[in-house]
Simulated scan of single mutants.
Amino acid sequence: MRMPSQKSTGTLSAGSVQAKSPQRARGHARVAVLLEAAGCEFAEKGYDGTTMTAIAARAGSSIGSLYQFFPTKEQIAGALLERYVNMLAETFRKLREAAPTLDISVLASRLTRTFLKFRTSHPAFAVLAETYGTALPGTSSIREDLHGGIASVLAAMAPHVAPAEIAVRAAVVQQLMKAAVAIHGDAAIAGRKAAVDELEGLMQHYLRDTISLAG
């Protein structure tokens, strides 16, 4: 998966302003703390409501240190998105490798709940990738990257199915995964857990149908 709003070159840039790329362990640790703080701020206040001053304060860092690594809010948001996308890419990589040997029921459960678990653990992801996509150029490609990850899992599960059909099926699976997130977050649904379980059953049926397709 590629970085949606910045290229992964080791130096983030925005216009003529460039950020410092950490060279030592201490610098990498500082960047990790800054990104963690930024994630908390974005999750709580949204992209527009978050300020560089608040991120620095939450990280226990000086504003000068923050600007040294991330001169703009867009850059720290982009770096955070890159971190999230890379984490999801690793999740799909592991699932792709395991897919040929997994029972369909297990694969269906993991796919159904991947987004749900990730968004619960990293609430800033949804804020940055969806709510404020227009403020961060290129974030629409995240959906394409995730679709590609899902397609790779389905292709490993059903290698005899044509790539074009896999692409279509991956789009449906992606929507089922998003539906699990929506159901889990809808307080108006009394039996949310049961509803997600039902969705998992639909996923299992759909995966079995995919495998049964003629090559």
Rank of each mutant, 00 (worst) to 15 (best):
E74W: 02
T50P: 03
K45V: 06
Q75E: 11
T72Q: 08
L34R: 01
E41Q: 09
L34W: 06
Q23V: 02
E44F: 03
H28T: 09
D48R: 10
P100L: 12
A19F: 06
R58D: 09
P22D: 03
V33T: 13
E82P: 05
E44P: 06
S65H: 00
R110F: 00
K117Q: 07
L116T: 08
V85K: 03
A43S: 14
E90K: 02
Q18L: 15
E44A: 15
S109Y: 10
H28N: 09
R110D: 13
T101A: 12
R30D: 14
L116A: 08
D103P: 00
N86H: 02
S109P: 01
A108T: 02
A25N: 10
Q68Y: 15
R24H: 04
A19H: 02
G27D: 14
T120R: 06
L88H: 08
G46C: 11
I55N: 11
G27M: 03
A37P: 05
K45H: 14
H28W: 13
A77M: 04
D103H: 04
L34M: 13
A79V: 09
E90C: 03
E74A: 14
T120E: 13
G46Q: 12
V106H: 14
C40F: 12
T50Y: 00
L111A: 07
E97Q: 06
T114L: 13
A98Y: 04
A99Q: 05
G39V: 08
A29Y: 05
T53A: 12
L35A: 10
T72H: 05
R58I: 05
A77R: 01
A57N: 12
Y47K: 00
L80Q: 12
S62N: 04
P22F: 09
Y67M: 15
R83L: 15
F92Q: 00
D103R: 00
T50E: 02
R58Q: 14
A57Y: 03
Q75K: 04
M87E: 13
S109R: 10
G60C: 04
T53W: 00
A79N: 12
S65W: 00
V85P: 11
N86C: 08
S105E: 15
Q75M: 15
V85W: 08
A56N: 07
K117G: 06
P100K: 11
L95I: 06
R26Y: 03
A56D: 10
H28P: 08
V31C: 15
L111F: 09
F92W: 03
R110P: 01
F42L: 02
F115C: 01
T91I: 08
V85Y: 02
T50F: 04
I104P: 01
L66D: 07
L35N: 05
E90M: 09
P100C: 12
G27K: 07
L95G: 05
T91A: 07
L107P: 11
E74R: 12
F92E: 00
D103Q: 01
G46T: 09
K94Q: 15
G78Q: 07
R26A: 14
Y84L: 04
A59E: 08
Y47A: 01
S61C: 14
V106G: 06
R96V: 10
N86E: 09
T51H: 05
